[in-house]
């Protein structure tokens, strides 16, 4: 069902363009949500249900709500058109060209239809869903990095609480 891929890829791209083009911050935020939804659908088409659903749950459902909340609360004004110095155009153009060159080099190594992605291990039967597999990897092979990330998040949370207190006693 390739047409679904094109529809959702279009969602993701149009959303991405919208983020940059719109002058109104709320419109930009909504374009970003559209882009996230498109991406989530693409993940789901690759049978990565967990990643796709987490994309919606975490990014579209939680992080963007907070973004929007802040935009509305502090009432960000529309971005005005302003002139950029010539060098910033040059820099941005350089980065864009470099990125496209990188993509071209990578894509050139895989002619269409030649290389196939290695098949994922059995995705049928009980206890073999992608959620189970991700969970098993996280709690066996990668248990140590997970602990470190968890501590990092905890430190960040404590840091936020400390910083947002007006006066330190």
């Amino acid at each position: 069902m390739t047409f679904l891929f094109y529809i959702f890829a279009a969602f993701a791209l149009i959303g991405g363009i919208g983020v940059v083009v719109y002058r109104n911050p709320v419109s930009s935020a909504f374009s970003m949500i559209l882009s996230f939804l498109g991406l989530a659908a693409l993940f789901i088409q690759l049978n990565a249900y967990l990643v796709g659903v987490l994309q919606i749950l975490v990014y579209a459902g939680a992080i963007m709500v907070l973004f929007l909340f802040i935009i509305m609360l502090i009432n960000v004004e529309d971005e005005e058109k302003r002139r950029f110095p010539f060098f910033s155009f040059l820099g941005a153009g350089g980065i864009a060209v470099a990125f496209i060159a990188l993509l071209a080099v990578v894509l050139k190594r895989f002619a269409p239809g030649e290389a196939t992605i290695p098949k994922l291990t059995a995705l049928e039967g009980p206890g073999t869903s992608d959620t189970h597999q991700v969970g098993e990897l996280l709690f066996s092979t990668y248990w140590f990095p997970i602990q470190i990330v968890a501590i990092l998040l905890l430190v960040a949370t404590v840091g936020v609480v400390v910083l947002s207190k007006k006066e330190l006693k």
Partner: peptide, 25 residues
């Protein structure tokens, strides 16, 4: 018949808030 049922429900239900926020704003 998804293998991520409750997560899917929570993910989509978390989008409901946009309607209300947008209506308010």
């Amino acid at each position: 018949d998804l293998d991520v049922g409750p997560l899917f429900v929570f993910a989509i239900a978390s989008l409901t808030v946009y309607g209300i926020v947008l209506a308010g704003w």
